[in-house]
Amino acid sequence: MKKRISTLLLLTACAGSLLLAAGCTKKPVIAPDAGGLNSGKTTSFPPADGSEFSQDNLPAVGSLDDASGSGAGGLGDNASDEYKRLHGRSSEGLSPVYFDFDQSAIRGDMTDRMVMNADFLKQSPGTRIVVEGNTDERGTNEYNLALAERRAQNAKQYLVRLGIDGSRMRTISYGEERPLFFGQNEDSYAQNRRADFVAE
C-alpha cells in the first residue's frame, strides 16, 4: 500500500511538471511605450526573431541566481520571500506598490512609497525607469495584460504628478506572466498584484 502511494505521488509530481512545462509557452504582453501612452500593441516577449526588442533595450531584472538584490534589476527570483515582499523586482532605492484585486488605482497605504520613489528619482536625475505592471493569475491573459498596463500607467502618472518628468519613465505590462509567488492563495495573489520600478 505504501509503495502504491509513493508511486502515485511520484506520477502526480511528474504529470504536474509536464503540465507546468506545457504552460510555459510564450504569451503576448503589451509592448513597452516610448514615454507616451501605450499603443496597446501586443507581442511575444521577447519576440523570437528579435525584431521589436533587442537584448540591449530589455528591462533588466537581475539573474535568477542573484538573490542579493544587487543585480541590475535589483532582484533574483531566488531571493528570500521576505526580500521579495519588501522589494518585489524593484531596483535598489525604489519600492514596489501593491494593488487591490481587480483595481488599478494607487492605494492610500501606498502613497508614502510613491513619494519615496519620487524623492529617489529627484535625487538621481539621470536615472530612467521602467514601471512594470503585474497581476495575479486570476482572470484571462488578455484581461490581466490590460489591467497590469493600467496599473503601470497609473503609477507612472502618479510620479509625474509628484514632479518626475514622464520622459524618464516607460511602462510595460507583464500581466500574470512573471509571478514572484506561486501559491494559489490570497497572500500570493496579493504579492503578485504589483507595479515594480526598475532602473534602466
Rank of each mutant, 00 (worst) to 15 (best):
V115G: 02
V115A: 10
M116S: 15
M116V: 13
M116D: 15
N117D: 15
A118S: 03
A118T: 05
A118L: 06
A118R: 01
A118N: 02
D119Y: 09
D119K: 09
D119I: 05
D119P: 01
D119S: 03
F120H: 09
F120E: 12
F120S: 03
F120A: 10
F120N: 06
L121E: 02
L121Y: 05
L121Q: 00
K122F: 03
K122W: 00
Q123P: 15
Q123E: 12
Q123T: 11
Q123A: 15
Q123G: 08
S124M: 06
P125S: 09
P125V: 11
P125I: 01
G126D: 15
G126V: 08
G126R: 12
G126P: 11
G126Q: 15
T127P: 00
T127W: 03
T127A: 15
T127L: 06
R128Q: 15
R128W: 11
R128A: 13
R128M: 13
I129K: 04
I129G: 00
V130T: 13
V130M: 11
V131M: 10
V131P: 07
V131F: 02
V131C: 03
V131N: 04
V131A: 04
V131W: 03
E132H: 02
E132K: 13
E132T: 07
E132F: 09
E132C: 12
E132G: 02
G133S: 02
N134Y: 08
N134F: 04
N134V: 07
N134M: 10
N134S: 14
T135Y: 01
T135S: 08
T135N: 01
T135M: 00
T135D: 01
T135F: 01
D136V: 05
D136Y: 01
D136R: 07
D136E: 10
D136A: 11
D136K: 09
E137V: 12
E137D: 13
E137A: 11
E137I: 11
E137Y: 12
E137N: 09
R138K: 14
R138M: 10
R138P: 04
G139I: 10
G139L: 07
G139E: 04
G139M: 03
T140Y: 07
T140Q: 03
N141H: 15
N141G: 10
N141K: 06
N141M: 08
N141I: 12
N141Q: 14
E142S: 09
E142C: 02
E142F: 13
Y143L: 07
Y143F: 14
Y143E: 09
Y143G: 09
N144Q: 04
N144W: 01
N144C: 03
N144K: 04
L145W: 02
L145D: 08
L145G: 10
